[in-house]
Design a protein around this nucleic acid. Structure first.
Lengths: 208, 208
DNA sequence: CGAATAACATACAGTCTGCATGTAAATGGC
DNA sequence: GCCATTTACATGCAGACTGTATGTTATTCG
């Protein structure tokens, strides 16, 4: 018999505390930056003490990694939600691209995922995270396009990485106030430029 | 009359101290990272005290910015040295690309310029630095290619930024051990894909 | 040749990180 | 159901670092 609000299983306690820490850290890491956010501030916002933080996470970096992972997965889910797999290869790529750019407009996401993430965790670690989430659909889209011969055959890893890098930079520029149309046009031109046939119109047959 | 090694003009003292601080900081920032390098370590390596550092630079970030600026200029000079302006537009672009990738293989440069730089100074500040140095030749090469109708007309700012982003990611991947040939091939395919004519061969007329 | 200023050096306050230690709550075998 | 063990925290501490304030020495300039 439990009195009041107590009597929670250990697993629930861990899950709740970790979630609150990650949520508080996410808010602060997106509002400010990794370097400008201290662990005292995080635990205060989460309603725990620094002891809890260092019990559940090895260090500040590990908490940051958890936040990055969660946010990368959120972006990935928004992309997959917006791009049904039943389209033509090129259309799927474009839908995914727009979904990515839209997802990255959440406040602070670009700094978290594109600036602090690589600097704090390293590019290698970010590649692992990206390949587990967001880049997967991009790579699959590229492979599908290559298989349907609507894209020249190229090393898939490299192509995925470089296109992803272009998308990342576009997201940063757009957040900084650049023209969405300009960057979208260049991204489409880069993708269409990879098709073996001369890209005359977007769709095979369609008069404007 | 000066005894020993003393009697230096104030301007010389400033120049010498600043240079030594920047050199020491450059070594440490490329050996380790910005976050892992403390000002006590920097001034010890430079043979001065922290007082001198904070006399010449507003804070640690300002010293870091000076190092980034110097390193970006070094990269830019290596590119311009390797790419004579008398070639065809596409050849100039390729020569510049290879020079950039070669220049970025200096130890620690990728982390300094591509990871820590954007995270510490922000993408906007890095864009200003890049546009003052490295990106200039890239942008000029693209404009030249567009004027000679060997490249489709696109927003120049956006195209420069996105191609630069791809080059940056390629440099990071190569440093991480990826295949140079793969990434070079994709970069060339991205550039060649922007030409309005169907890209059959690299040069206008040349069998294989 | 002094007064003003620049180029440092030294000392200090505040903050942060990671760890070590202590305590309360849950778990699991008997 | 009870007790030993483990887990989930809280508290306190040591070391390091950043930025600034103050003091000192070397230049510059009228």
């Amino acid at each position: 018999m439990q009195q009041g609000s107590a009597r929670r299983s250990n697993r629930d306690r861990t899950a709740a505390t970790r979630a609150e820490l990650i949520a508080a850290a996410r808010k602060l890491f997106t509002d400010k930056s990794y370097a400008e956010t201290g662990t005292p501030e995080i635990v205060a916002a989460a309603g725990v003490t620094r002891g809890a933080l260092y019990h559940h996470f090895a260090d500040k970096q590990a908490l940051f990694a958890a936040v990055v992972e969660q946010e990368a997965q959120a972006v990935s889910e928004e992309i997959e939600r917006a791009s049904p797999p039943s389209l033509f290869a090129r259309d799927a790529l474009i839908a995914g691209s727009d979904a990515y750019l839209a997802a990255m407009r959440a406040p602070g996401r670009t700094r978290l995922l594109l600036l602090d993430g690589p600097a704090v965790l390293g590019r290698a670690a970010m590649d692992v995270i990206d390949n587990r989430h967001g880049n997967r659909s991009l790579r699959e889209g590229l492979v599908a396009a290559m298989r349907s011969h609507s894209m020249t055959r190229l090393p898939v890893e490299a192509l995925t990485a470089l296109l992803a890098a272009a998308f990342d930079r576009a997201a940063l520029a757009i957040e900084a106030g650049a023209s969405i149309e300009d960057y979208r046009a260049v991204l489409m031109a880069l993708i269409d430029g990879l098709s073996p046939a001369p890209p005359q119109a977007s769709h095979p047959a369609r008069t404007r």
